[in-house]
Design a protein around this nucleic acid. Sequence first.
DNA 1: TGTCAATATCGACATCCGTCAATCTCCGCG
DNA 2: CGCGGAGATTGACGGATGTCGATATTGACA
Lengths: 121, 121
Amino acid sequence: MPLDLLPVSAPATCCTPAASPAISEQDAVQLARTLKALADPARLRLLSLIAAQDGAEACVCDLIEPVGLSQPTVSHHLKVLTDAGLVTREKRGVWAWFALVPGALEQVTSHLGAHLTGRPA
Amino acid sequence: MPLDLLPVSAPATCCTPAASPAISEQDAVQLARTLKALADPARLRLLSLIAAQDGAEACVCDLIEPVGLSQPTVSHHLKVLTDAGLVTREKRGVWAWFALVPGALEQVTSHLGAHLTGRPA
DNA sequence: TGTCAATATCGACATCCGTCAATCTCCGCG
DNA sequence: CGCGGAGATTGACGGATGTCGATATTGACA
């Protein structure tokens, strides 16, 4: 049945111009790059394992067994996280220690909130 | 005979047990699934465009031109976002309106912070 | 009813991604 | 010096992903 008691409201309501500026193409690419580094179960667990260690740092030998992946795979994931600026790598003698970058995660979430939050008011 | 019993293991500070429990495998998979939906420039822009509209909702015709992708591709990305629970889809006449799911993004960031923050103290 | 416009779905394709085995590099130690 | 171990790099492979053109579907309207 012809509903919409509203006169002609429907046709005009589509394609309204944006009320506020959206995220830029560049910012979207950069933010997506960081999110891609986070968007993997193995890497989330690695970050969580590092965060769970005392001082928020851990050596690779602490991580291989808990995640249940081969050593090269763990090394690969840690490289991805390092390149994304989420962790730092420091060689101490024979061992490589990885530590969370303070504030890195907060920066991601703040960018997300800044661009993707529905109108707060 | 093997000899791990040697007390010399002390100087080797490597391989200390975790100080607190890490994220579970299941939670990691679920969180990664949502992050994967976010980890794409086109989808970030779509979310941002929707958020920028009045009422945090927009119809597809508002989104195709700004993102500069084909209509099927935009439709595909919107489906990914919908399946991830980040936006909702509502058909109004000929048009499909997509709206941000309130609190969905906050839930993601809160889970991130809960598991991946270095010891706050 | 038939046509048109807005979206969704399908099929195909190129690329990217996660994973492992094998190998290489580097460092400490005898 | 040479050995052994920690970890990074390489090569390969199967599966997932982003993109588009073509097509199907659905509602509005004459």
